[in-house]
Amino acid sequence: MRTPLTPEERERGERLGLLLREARGGRSMTEIAAVAGISPETLRKIETGRAPTPAFFTVAALARALGLSMDELAVLCAPVPV
């Protein structure tokens, strides 16, 4: 059984999805998913927050496909201090 996600993990996943959607712009999910080597459904789940903790290599492939740096994503998805 998988450990439930914390609210912070869910929030971080939602921020990641939003960043990826914004970076994708007018390009289709199918196009970006193909370049990243993942399925469009996987990209859809990440972008909508239904897959809030994607594998590192999936995020790296998406960052490369979208022209984003992993450092940039890490900073933008970092937990917001309370």
Rank of each mutant, 00 (worst) to 15 (best):
R2Y: 11
T3R: 14
T3P: 08
L5V: 13
T6V: 07
P7D: 12
P7E: 12
E8L: 11
E9N: 03
E11I: 14
E11Q: 14
G13I: 01
G13M: 12
G13E: 02
R15D: 01
L16A: 04
L16K: 02
G17P: 01
L18H: 13
L19N: 05
L19F: 03
R21P: 00
E22H: 14
R24L: 06
G25Q: 09
G25V: 10
G26N: 14
R27Q: 11
R27V: 12
S28C: 11
M29D: 09
M29A: 08
M29P: 00
M29H: 03
M29Y: 07
M29K: 09
T30M: 11
T30A: 07
T30C: 11
E31K: 09
E31W: 08
A33I: 10
A33R: 05
A34S: 15
A34P: 01
V35I: 06
A36I: 06
A36H: 02
A36Q: 02
G37Q: 05
G37R: 05
I38Q: 01
S39C: 08
P40Y: 03
E41N: 13
E41F: 11
T42R: 06
R44L: 05
K45F: 04
K45H: 06
I46W: 01
I46G: 00
E47M: 15
T48L: 07
T48H: 05
T48Y: 00
T48P: 03
G49T: 06
R50V: 14
A51P: 00
P52Q: 12
P52V: 02
T53H: 04
P54D: 06
F56G: 05
F57V: 07
A60P: 00
L62V: 03
L62Y: 09
L62C: 11
A63V: 10
R64V: 06
L66G: 03
L66M: 10
G67L: 04
L68Q: 09
S69H: 03
S69Q: 03
M70L: 04
D71S: 12
E72P: 02
E72G: 13
L73P: 00
L73E: 00
L73A: 00
V75A: 04
V75G: 13
V75D: 09
V75H: 05
L76Y: 15
L76V: 07
L76R: 14
C77L: 07
A78R: 11
A78H: 10
A78L: 13
A78E: 14
A78S: 10
P79Y: 14
P79D: 15
V80Y: 07
P81Y: 01
P81V: 07
P81N: 04
